[in-house]
Design a protein around this nucleic acid. Structure first.
Lengths: 121, 121
DNA sequence: CAGGATCCGCCTCGATACTG
DNA sequence: CAGTATCGAGGCGGATCCTG
């Protein structure tokens, strides 16, 4: 599969907004910000607990994808604690905590701003 | 059509990340940040010029949608200058300039960070 | 020129079933 | 328990055609 960023595929390199674009896409993925937010409230948390801690129903598949992505970007560490029944803990890295701080800041900045849904009309 | 925000549909009201979620979705829509960035470089700019000023090819339909969304959120003003051939100018509101500043700040914060694509694997 | 209307492919997510 | 594999549905964005 094409592993390049969207900015790269667009040939829009060198123009402001590229890296930012990828960053926004990364964060805007469904559940992503919730996952970060929830991880930030625990020193470490297991897969199932994290899943239940999230508001609403997130499928295991998606949670797994998000955690993997976060890990790849260095926001999260995965710790496998032996076996049977499987125990895995996730926690934010220092960089992850920075991200959380940024998100909180963003939320504060938005303040009372209302943003309608992003649907096409 | 369902005009509620995703956060509302998820029943995740009251949990941190809702409004932020919508905001991220809003900004992460394709071309959105580029449109804001480009608008910020002109006091006012016409539809076609804006279209050509954007890096890569954006369809008229999508640009129209983005501008409409930005206008609805109070980031952009649309000025219709008489008729034939149609002339329409778009420009950022003070609030829109604030948004641009935030985006620039975000970009600076990201710095040399690389974020991989948001695709599923 | 500035868009609206349509059609359509692709991607993302959700649900379900399965495994070490 | 912590995932992976597979399938299907819905939504977003691109292309094309059309109009005041």
């Amino acid at each position: 599969m094409d592993a390049r960023t969207r900015a790269e595929r667009d040939g829009s390199d060198g123009v402001a907004g590229c890296r930012l674009d990828d960053f926004l896409n990364f964060l805007a993925q469904r559940w992503m910000s919730h996952v970060v937010w929830t991880l930030a409230q625990h020193p470490a948390i297991r897969f199932g607990a994290l899943r239940r801690a999230l508001p609403g129903e997130i499928s295991a598949r998606v949670l797994s994808n998000r955690l993997k992505a976060l890990e790849e970007e260095g926001f999260v560490v995965r710790r496998d604690l032996g076996t049977l029944p499987l125990h895995v803990e996730y926690s934010l890295t220092p960089r992850g905590r920075l991200l959380d701080a940024e998100l909180r800041r963003g939320e504060a900045q938005i303040g009372r701003t209302k943003i309608a849904d992003a649907k096409e009309r």
